[in-house]
Design a protein around this nucleic acid. Structure first.
Lengths: 115, 115
DNA sequence: CTGTATCCTTCTAGATACTG
DNA sequence: CAGTATCTAGAAGGATACAG
């Protein structure tokens, strides 16, 4: 699974952060985890309408392999899976929160046509 | 100039933020603006070694057209250009700071091999 | 429901050469 | 120095079909 490569040894901590959260939908996915601690595949799919099933699976897999989220599979029919942030993943919440906050500011700004 | 499209009407403020800062090098570029208020093209190029001249120009142009940065061209030979954050661009600083902070945490964690 | 595999088109981004 | 233009290989990502 390829992804953007950042040379984190360059001394730019922002690159390290991007290494983990720069996937096209990762920050959005993490935002949902922030709002709801346990998430399911279908739920996320419905919430993030522009992200295809394929992309959602890829992004979740990368987040899982980076230790940001973990999943629990219930061996039932139909299949059910719980996803949640790991303790490590929770440390990203402030980053997502600051993005949420700025996004709200920006949306309001656009609404008011200040720009 | 194409880029990721996020449906910001979806009610996810994080998507609005990504709309502005999700370019491959934008957050890194903004990090440099945060550290040094006036930046030059060549300076940024040297600082962000893995970003090609072409990519740097594209990212700067997008940031400029989004009103995040502004540039001032000195009609001298050889050419010289100053880039700096606009007032609007400065509102992004807390976002970049939270990414910086997490990146430092992450780098330290990796160093200590806690993971 | 929760994925995976494959095909196929579109997009990205490096290399290189050129310009004011 | 500070870009722009073009070409191209490779990567990303949608559509679709299939699987447990």
């Amino acid at each position: 699974m390829k992804r953007h490569i950042y040379n984190c040894q360059a001394g730019c901590p922002v690159e390290s952060t991007l290494q983990i959260i720069s996937g096209k939908w990762k920050a959005v996915i993490l935002y949902h985890f922030m709002k709801e601690s346990i998430c399911h595949f279908g739920e996320l799919q419905r919430s993030i309408k522009d992200c295809s099933r394929r992309m959602l699976a890829i992004q979740l897999k990368e987040l899982e392999s980076d230790g940001v989220i973990e999943k629990k599979i219930y061996p039932v029919t139909p299949p059910k899976t719980d996803y949640k942030l790991t303790e490590f993943g929770e440390t990203l919440i402030p980053v997502i929160q600051s993005m949420e906050k700025w996004g709200n500011y920006y949306n309001q700004r656009v609404d008011e046509n200040i720009k």
